[in-house]
Write a protein that binds this DNA or RNA. Structure first.
Lengths: 166, 166
DNA sequence: CTCCGATTGTTTGGATGCGAATCATTTTCA
DNA sequence: TGAAAATGATTCGCATCCAAACAATCGGAG
């Protein structure tokens, strides 16, 4: 939604289109800026941190979740990362081919697949995540540090609402 | 990033992995909840409003931008919507085939293509956007209305930072 | 007037992501 | 015990999206 028109201009124009209706501009501002912010931050992190390692966003999330929780079942990776099992299968194959992680069959339950990082994968994350977090910090600090806790909480609340009201 | 573990659990686990490093958990919470919120809200709006009209997210954005600013040049639609020209070409073809908008060649500049909604498209948006905004309102109201202005402002600030620091 | 670089939309090729169907394994319960 | 249901991961087909190459057009330098 980033464009040549400011939000104020857009709101004025929308208002002209909908004088007779009852439009909640403040709610519109919240959601549209939510999408703009998420997109721009993701692009920023991809460019400044992930691109030089040739990692897609999803690939990084898979590595990160695995790194934190390994050994971990694939279904948990998908749940934590918020993407489908089908997507995960492809990404895991790519990362396994690149030697960053390995798949093992579970001994207790033959349907499950367990994932662990390789030493190469761990070494990568040891340097990559601090770099990632450094950029996260720069992004977050564009709002006052004292306000960041409340902001994160509000976003959590929004998530909870949107997920429960399917 | 929605998963069986709470953010607090994840942070504790990350802390164990990184006791010796200097990780900014508050910044991590801001960005990760930003992505979770944006994804869940988008899914919510797609399910509750867009699915019954068989519109993709991008298709809706194109219709919305066109509806507000028509007649509008395609390059402006792409800029406002935040996606590439290539993406726009495909979506425009789909929407034109469905009779919701039309493309015209500009008379002043033969390179430009001008887009307008059809009456059918306008009629659709006359009912669709109020329904969309109603859900936006429900989402936004999960935080106190008096706090929504500040929230939108903070998101704007984050966007500005992430876009400027390419 | 004539190039030649810049701008714009489209096409092409490839990456990504998902839902549905499929296959393998485990669990359930009659 | 054994057949059916349930649970996982994978495969397949499809939609979406983008960067790069391409064709058409514009505009300015000479």
């Amino acid at each position: 939604m980033a464009g040549p028109h400011t939000l104020a201009e857009t709101e004025r124009q929308v208002n002209q289109k909908l004088v007779h209706k009852n439009i909640n501009f403040e709610a519109m501002a919240v959601t549209s800026n939510l999408f703009r912010a998420a997109n721009s931050v993701r692009n920023h992190l991809e460019r400044t941190v992930l691109a030089k390692e040739d990692l897609s966003w999803t690939a990084f999330v898979v590595l990160w979740v695995t790194w934190i929780w390994e050994p971990i079942e694939t279904r948990q990776i998908a749940a934590e990362g918020g993407f489908s099992k089908a997507t995960l299968t492809g990404v895991l194959s790519t990362l396994e081919k690149r030697g960053l992680l390995v798949r093992k069959k579970s001994k207790e339950d033959g349907r499950l697949v367990i994932v662990e990082l390789t030493n190469k994968g761990r070494k990568l994350m040891d340097t990559l995540f601090p770099a990632f977090n450094k950029q996260e910090t720069a992004v977050a600090n564009s709002v006052a540090p004292s306000k960041q806790g409340v902001l994160a909480d509000q976003l959590r609340t929004i998530t909870k609402f949107a997920e429960s009201n399917s």
